[in-house]
Structures are given as C-alpha cells and as structure tokens.
C-alpha cells in the first residue's frame, strides 16, 4: 500500500522539479498536463461504458472562448479567462449532453464525433469570425493585474497546470466513489435497475457528461494559453481520437492512468516524430489494437499487476476495471 502511494508521490515531485532540473522539458510537460486533464474527461465517460469520439469539441470550445474573450477584453485576467472558458465548455456540455445522453454505444460515440465535426467546419468556414484554418491568437492574459514576461508567465502556467492536475484528479477520484458518481457508473452495467431505483439514466449520464466536458475545457484552455494560438485543429477528430487513445493507453477508467498515459504519449511523440512523423497515426492505431486486445487495463493495469507480483498481494481492484 505504501509503495502504491510512494511511487506516484515521487513522480509528482519529479514533475514539479522539471522547470529547474530540465527546463527544456517544461513546455512539453505543460502540454502533457493539459492533455492529461482533458483525457480525464474521456476517462469519466469510459467509467459509464461510453466512448466519445468527439470530445475535442469541448477542448476547442474552451480555447476559442478564451481567445474571443481576450480579443474583446485586452489584458483580461488569467483567472477570468479560465473561468469563462471552462464555463463555456460546461454550458456546451449541457446543451450537447441533453441530446447525446439519450444514446449509448455506437450512437453515443458517433454523435459526439458528428458534433465535433460540425463545430470544426464552422471554425473553418466562418473565417470572418474564427480566422479559418489559421485560427486566432490568444494573447497572454495578465496575472492578478500584472502583465508578465514570457518566462515567469510560463512558470506560473506550469505550476497552475500541475495544481489543477492534482486538484481535478483528486476531485474526480472522490466523485467516482461518491453516491452520484456510483449512480453514474451503473450506466455501464444495468440501466434497467437504475430506472427501477427511481433514477433517470439520462440525468445520471448528463452529470458525468458535463463533468467530462468541463475537464476537457480545462485542458483546452490551458493548451490554448500556453501555445498562444487556437486553431480548428483543436476540434479535429484526430485530437478526439488521441484523447481516447491516451485514456485507453493509461488504463481505461483510471484517473492516474490518464496522466501517466498523457506524459508517456507526449514524450514518445516528441522524440518519435523526428523519425516516425509520417507513420505516427499508424503507430498509435497499432498500439491501440495491441492494448485493447492484449492489455485492456492499460499501463495502470500493468503497474498494479507488477506491484502485486512484487509484494505478493492481490492487485487493488479499486481503480482497475474488468
């Protein structure tokens, strides 16, 4: 048990030391943290047995909301930008959610994809407002009224992202264990019983859907601010697919797995793109097949099994799923 907790704590400390110990990795790791938060959003839905191929939608909505706000209110504060962006993602989550929670499985996955494609083509076609394929700039927000230079601002964004990872990760794990989170997860196993408990499965799914949209929004707005520009690519299906991929790679349904998966993914991508840029999707697809067919519990499942073998105890089933 202590080993189980000690290793994640050490990893977090190592990440926190990156800006000083390995500054060249700072930006990369910050993007991984942002992506990790968004992936937790996809993970939430996997807990209810649903997969969305369009969650980049909320990623993009938050990023564009931040960009529009910054354009109309130059020098807007970071906190305000974050709040507005995430609120935008959550509200869109309610609106899209009201529609898609009536569906499961194939329809759920594909309708989410359809919504993200619609948004993507709006971003591309209505270029008077959205800047088209080039996107729009997202100027650096002020921090508590101070206009910061690039260095300190990036440092603040890094630690803010790390803090959000810990806070939101903790919140999501706690919510999974709470009555409302447990009701949400029963969507996966028995909706008939859920109805006969007097609960609307649609409502239960919507709760989790809005949470997942908000999490994707947090990831999207951080990504937009750190990169300084938002493009339709934020909503593109490949990004949605990437999120699903990372969630499954880390361990379908595991919050810690989402972050581990995101970190592994970003690091491998950065170093592999030099010699495997052309076949990147292919590598992802191949890897996804291997995980789904041979290691459905992902990296976290392998971690649990290894620990169990080392300590000679049964793997903790709390985080992993059948």
């Amino acid at each position: 048990m202590t080993v189980r907790l000690a290793i994640p704590a050490l990893i977090l400390l190592a990440v926190a030391a990156i800006p000083f110990a390995a500054p060249s990795l700072q930006l990369l790791m910050n993007l991984a943290l942002a992506k990790g938060i968004a992936v937790v959003g996809v993970t939430v839905l996997l807990r209810a047995g649903q997969v969305s191929f369009g969650h980049a939608l909320f990623f993009a909505i938050a990023a564009y909301a931040a960009a529009f706000l910054s354009a109309s209110m130059p020098g807007a504060d970071l906190v305000l930008v974050l709040v507005v962006a995430v609120a935008g993602a959550a509200i869109s989550g309610v609106l899209v959610g009201l529609f898609v929670v009536r569906y499961r499985g194939i329809f759920f996955g594909m309708l989410n994809l359809a919504f993200s494609m619609i948004f993507w083509s709006i971003l591309e076609k209505f270029y008077h407002y959205t800047g088209g394929a080039d996107g729009i700039r997202l100027p650096r927000p002020t921090v508590f009224g101070m206009a910061l230079e690039r260095g300190p601002f990036e440092l603040i964004m890094f630690y803010l992202s790390l803090a959000l990872v810990i806070l939101l990760g903790w919140f999501t794990v706690r919510w999974f264990a709470s009555p409302s989170g447990q009701l949400f997860q029963t969507i996966k196993t028995n909706e008939t019983r859920l109805q006969y408990l007097g609960v609307s499965p649609q409502r239960a799914l919507l709760t989790g859907y809005v949470l997942s949209a908000a999490l994707c929004g947090v990831g999207g707005v951080i990504m937009g601010i750190v990169q300084g520009v938002v493009t339709p690519e934020f909503a593109w299906w490949i990004r949605s697919g990437e999120m699903v991929f990372i969630a499954v790679l880390g361990g379908a349904g595991s919050v810690a797995g989402a972050f581990v998966g995101a970190a592994i993914y970003e690091i491998v991508r950065t170093y592999a793109s030099a010699f495997a840029g052309d076949i990147w999707q292919m590598l992802l697809g191949g890897f996804l097949l291997v995980i789904v067919i041979f290691a459905p519990k992902g990296v976290i499942g392998i971690y649990d099994a290894t620990l169990a073998r080392l300590t000679g105890t049964r793997a903790n089933d709390g985080e992993t799923r059948k």
């Binding site: 919510w175 264990a177 709470s178 009555p179 409302s180 989170g181 447990q182 007097g198």
Partner: peptide
C-alpha cells in the same frame, strides 16, 4: 443513495 437523492460529490458512498 438513489432513494435519499444523495448528491455530495466528495462523500465516499461507503
């Protein structure tokens, strides 16, 4: 939990 409409997001169901 369904009967009592328990909603607290941070309370462990157990």
């Amino acid at each position: 939990s369904a009967r009592e409409r328990l909603r607290h997001p941070l309370q462990d169901m157990h």
